[in-house]
């Protein structure tokens, strides 16, 4: 299976001591490594206001991680751990590689179009509108 990219955000109770959060992060990294994944980035966003009440808290300590893994079991395991730990009040994992792939495709597409356009305007300004579809067809086939 190809590698997948995940975003993992979890929110801790605002009263949680800093070292406990670090401990949670460490255990997550450890278990990620065990399951053949890799934590690419860990960011502590600090205490932020929540948009709505979560288990009677109005604020929470946000931690953001980026994971890369070829196995989906890793998410199951990490979420299980987050669920079990008392300090964590909310978590969310989002798979991002498909979105990013789409983004790259669009960027690539735009670059190609941008590189093609100047040639056309220089060669024949009048039939400009009819040329691009034909050119695309030849490029596609």
């Amino acid at each position: 299976m190809e590698e997948r990219l995940y975003d993992l955000i979890f929110i801790c109770r605002p009263a949680t001591p800093e070292e406990e959060i670090s401990k949670i992060v460490a255990t997550l990294e450890h278990s990620a490594a065990e399951h053949g994944g890799k934590v690419e980035k860990t960011e502590k966003w600090g205490t932020r206001r929540l948009a709505y009440r979560v288990s009677k808290h109005r604020e929470g300590f946000f931690v953001y991680m980026v994971l890369r893994s070829a196995q989906s079991d890793i998410i199951k395991e990490l979420e299980r751990r987050l669920k079990v730990s008392d300090a964590v009040i909310k978590y969310q994992t989002v798979r991002l590689d498909e979105d990013l792939k789409r983004q790259q495709k669009l960027v690539h597409h735009r670059e190609r179009r941008a590189s093609r356009r100047p040639r056309k305007t220089g060669a024949a300004p009048a039939p400009q509108q009819q040329v691009p579809p034909a050119a695309e067809q030849t490029a596609a086939s």
Binding site: I9, I11, L50, A51, Y52, V54, G60, K90, Y91, Q92, V94
Partner: peptide, 12 residues
């Protein structure tokens, strides 16, 4: 997605 992780409200 932002709503789910309490960055945006569902309804205030």
């Amino acid at each position: 997605r932002a709503r789910n992780i309490a960055l945006l409200p569902f309804a205030t």
